[in-house]
Simulated assay, not measured.
Amino acid sequence: MNETFNISSSPHIRAKVTTGNIMFLVLIALMPTTLFGIYNFGVQALGIVFLTVASAVATEYLFERFMGKKITIADGSAAVTGLLLALNLPPTAPWWMCVLGAVFAILVVKQLFGGLGQNFMNPALAARCFLLISFTGRMTTFVYDGVSGATPLAQLKTGESVNTMDMLIGNIAGTIGETSVIAIMIGAMFLLFMGVIDLRIPGTYLITFIVMIVLFSGKGFDLNYLTAQLCGGGLMLGAWFMATDYVTAPITKNGQILYGVCLGVLTGLFRLLGRSAEGVSYAIIISNLLVPLIERVTRPRPFGKGGER
């Protein structure tokens, strides 16, 4: 035999795609949402995006430098975390809140648990929930066209009517990145086309959420109400860009479907029964905590094992 066999540890099948490649594609996909947010809310939104991304990258660099670890900021994961956090902040967020959120996301949620691939929940959403709990007033105060007011989702919860076309386009109050469903879907379609994500998690998530709203909202199949629920809040941004995070989502196919169901059920419960009109952030991080259990119950059995004796 002239063939040479190399013995190595698993994995034996490797892809050429790298973490840096994936993060670069995610950054591109987030550009429509980011640019619309800056257009919608002005230079203040641009400052928040720049400061939050810079703080996230700087935190990762300084931590790894002082701890004597390999510098990994070139892979783009810290920049993606910073950008996702910025898109989840109100355009009126003060500079210190941007920095605090970025430091919490990178230092506490990511690096203290081992760095990329070891965090147990989405760092950007964990930071958003931390800021929501700590500074509820500032995180839930929204200004649009110089007028302070509630988001359409909050208006919907109090029984007021909302303009679903404005919600679809993005001419509404909200966080920097959650307002325009059209901009979010452009980025989502790009990720689908490039093979970075598939429909399993976001599709199951949205379908389950629709079922929850139809069955338990008391509105039945009210198309206007259902459209407003889908377009309002951070549902679309969360479903396509944060629920699909490779690190904190299940790797098994059946697990991804079950994960999507958990997301839809929790989001529906939080929106319909909770005091807050939102619920996506909490639904995702709670489901992140359930991922080890989900993977355990959906793990495929090895060939030849698990049968009756």
Results as ranks from 00 to 15, higher is better:
residue 2 N to A: 13
residue 4 T to S: 13
residue 5 F to R: 12
residue 9 S to P: 00
residue 10 S to A: 15
residue 11 P to H: 09
residue 11 P to F: 11
residue 17 V to M: 12
residue 17 V to R: 14
residue 18 T to Y: 09
residue 21 N to S: 13
residue 23 M to E: 10
residue 24 F to W: 09
residue 24 F to D: 03
residue 27 L to I: 12
residue 27 L to K: 00
residue 28 I to Y: 02
residue 32 P to C: 08
residue 32 P to R: 01
residue 34 T to I: 06
residue 38 I to F: 11
residue 39 Y to C: 13
residue 45 A to R: 00
residue 47 G to S: 09
residue 49 V to T: 10
residue 51 L to F: 08
residue 52 T to Y: 07
residue 55 S to K: 04
residue 57 V to C: 05
residue 57 V to R: 00
residue 57 V to N: 02
residue 61 Y to Q: 07
residue 61 Y to F: 15
residue 64 E to S: 15
residue 65 R to C: 08
residue 65 R to T: 10
residue 66 F to W: 13
residue 67 M to D: 11
residue 68 G to R: 07
residue 69 K to I: 02
residue 70 K to N: 03
residue 73 I to C: 04
residue 77 S to E: 02
residue 79 A to Y: 00
residue 80 V to D: 03
residue 84 L to E: 05
residue 87 L to M: 05
residue 88 N to D: 12
residue 88 N to M: 12
residue 89 L to Y: 06
residue 93 A to E: 03
residue 101 G to N: 05
residue 106 I to F: 08
residue 109 V to N: 01
residue 109 V to D: 01
residue 115 G to I: 04
residue 119 N to K: 08
residue 120 F to L: 15
residue 120 F to K: 09
residue 125 L to K: 00
residue 127 A to K: 01
residue 127 A to N: 06
residue 129 C to I: 15
residue 130 F to G: 06
residue 130 F to P: 03
residue 130 F to E: 03
residue 133 I to M: 14
residue 135 F to D: 04
residue 136 T to S: 14
residue 138 R to S: 14
residue 141 T to F: 03
residue 144 Y to F: 15
residue 151 T to F: 05
residue 151 T to A: 07
residue 152 P to V: 02
residue 153 L to G: 06
residue 156 L to I: 08
residue 157 K to I: 07
residue 158 T to M: 12
residue 158 T to G: 00
residue 162 V to H: 05
residue 163 N to Y: 03
residue 163 N to F: 05
residue 163 N to R: 02
residue 165 M to H: 04
residue 166 D to G: 10
residue 168 L to N: 01
residue 168 L to I: 14
residue 168 L to K: 05
residue 171 N to T: 13
residue 174 G to T: 05
residue 175 T to M: 08
residue 176 I to W: 09
residue 176 I to T: 08
residue 180 S to C: 08
residue 182 I to T: 12
residue 185 M to V: 14
residue 186 I to S: 07
residue 188 A to P: 02
residue 189 M to G: 14
residue 190 F to V: 12
residue 192 L to V: 08
residue 194 M to T: 14
residue 195 G to R: 10
residue 195 G to V: 10
residue 197 I to W: 02
residue 200 R to S: 13
residue 202 P to R: 11
residue 202 P to A: 09
residue 204 T to E: 01
residue 205 Y to C: 01
residue 207 I to P: 02
residue 207 I to V: 15
residue 211 V to M: 09
residue 225 Y to R: 10
residue 225 Y to M: 08
residue 226 L to Q: 08
residue 230 L to D: 07
residue 230 L to S: 05
residue 230 L to R: 05
residue 232 G to I: 04
residue 233 G to E: 08
residue 239 A to T: 05
residue 246 Y to H: 14
residue 246 Y to V: 12
residue 246 Y to N: 11
residue 250 P to N: 06
residue 252 T to D: 02
residue 254 N to Q: 10
residue 254 N to S: 14
residue 255 G to H: 03
residue 256 Q to H: 02
residue 257 I to Q: 06
residue 259 Y to L: 06
residue 261 V to Q: 04
residue 262 C to H: 01
residue 263 L to C: 09
residue 264 G to T: 08
residue 264 G to I: 09
residue 272 L to N: 10
residue 274 G to N: 09
residue 275 R to G: 12
residue 276 S to Y: 15
residue 279 G to C: 07
residue 283 A to C: 11
residue 292 P to Y: 12
residue 293 L to E: 01
residue 297 V to S: 04
residue 298 T to L: 04
residue 301 R to T: 10
residue 303 F to P: 00
residue 304 G to K: 06
residue 307 G to N: 04
